[in-house]
Design a protein around this nucleic acid. Structure first.
Lengths: 201, 201
DNA sequence: CTCAACTAACTATCAGCATAGATAGTTAGT
DNA sequence: ACTAACTATCTATGCTGATAGTTAGTTGAG
């Protein structure tokens, strides 16, 4: 159900086509939320059906047509309603931590490379999210600037603060994952000091 | 696809019925991985069909019957294969962080209570996971003890170390989420010093 | 001019998971 | 003897998301 609200959030800034939204999710916005186009187009149709959006056929080239959606009053209300509603947390289900619990079954070299990959995965995210924070601080965030243009100047700092806050959360999560993976690598060195003992537990 | 391996992990320790496994996921094991019974029973049948498990009808009371599954050689191999395979990370998709990015739309009181709930949610998890660590350290973890009974004494410390490592990761993640939520609450106090300004952005 | 890359939208299929409910037998306490 | 709680298994429905296509028009570089 969150895809709907991610779409509303983006369309609150300005009207867009499904393809525009897809591009957003493929680039910077995708660092917070991602969706494939095969999910976006049908959802937009459902949202229009539900009265949250209104679509409008726009010419594109000579024969081309595209459908641009803008948020309706009901859409804005639904968004505000969502943002004020407590979300319910899913049960735990994390493949990497599940794996970690049974790492004695793994080939030590494989365990090492997987923890290494874990650190690298979050390392890459970390850089992206830190970059976002710098863009926010430097006023060079395209997304944020378009959003700021739609709110009174007095609210600018507030809007920026929440965006920054979001990325802070993501960076500290990434840092915690990296630290964990590093501890895991150290643990492997400790538990398998010499080369590679038999794999079968 | 991870459910399959979570089930194999549990069944590697001892044969169990679908209901036994369901109970495990409902209790302590559920702090790392959860699945409803409606997912477990069909998956067990598929796993038996795929030769990873063998099921056996066991009497239960006078008329009752239950099906107890044990892991086959192919099952153990599949598990070892999984644990040695690099997993691929899903794209970012976190409702709470999505929400946080648009918190200027929220009613400040609602924002506060949601961040409070976020901290409390992870606070509860934190306690559970810390408890697990203490059980591991104190040798009172039922699950771990049954698992240790199946491996040579020389491997005990290793097996325990990986379990502990898993819960360490989960606790530090929880701590990072709690810290983030607290920072959010402080931010709200900063941005809305006096009562509650108009909600509409 | 033409070809590659891009824009735009849509379809199909499948796994995972949530939710809800159905059925039937068992056990323990009153 | 009754009944509540538990054990055991199964089914149905629906949403989300991943993957992998298809179709058609547009734009820009060489």
């Amino acid at each position: 159900m969150s895809l709907r609200y991610a779409l509303l959030a983006l369309l609150n800034v300005e009207p867009m086509t499904g393809y525009d939204l897809y591009k957003q999710f493929e680039s910077s916005v995708g660092y917070v939320w991602h969706a494939p186009d095969s999910q976006i187009y049908p959802e937009l149709r459902r949202m229009e059906r539900d009265g949250l959006l209104e679509g409008e056929e726009v010419a594109w080239g000579t024969k081309g047509r595209k459908r641009q959606y803008h948020v309706t009053g009901a859409g804005r209300e639904a968004f505000r309603n969502w943002i004020n509603t407590q979300l319910d947390y899913p049960r735990e289900r994390d493949p990497m931590h599940l794996k970690a619990a049974y790492l004695e079954w793994a080939d030590p070299d494989s365990a090492r490379s997987q923890l290494q990959a874990h650190a690298e995965h979050y390392g890459a995210r970390l850089i992206q999210w830190q970059q976002k924070i710098q863009e926010i601080d430097g006023g060079t965030s395209d997304m944020l600037n378009r959003r700021l243009a739609t709110v009174p100047a007095g609210d600018h700092s507030r809007v920026a603060a929440f965006k920054r806050f979001t990325y802070e959360g993501l960076t500290s999560r990434a840092e915690s994952e990296i630290a964990w993976a590093r501890r895991g690598l150290a643990l492997l060195d400790e538990l398998y000091p010499d080369g590679e003992p038999p794999t079968a537990p």
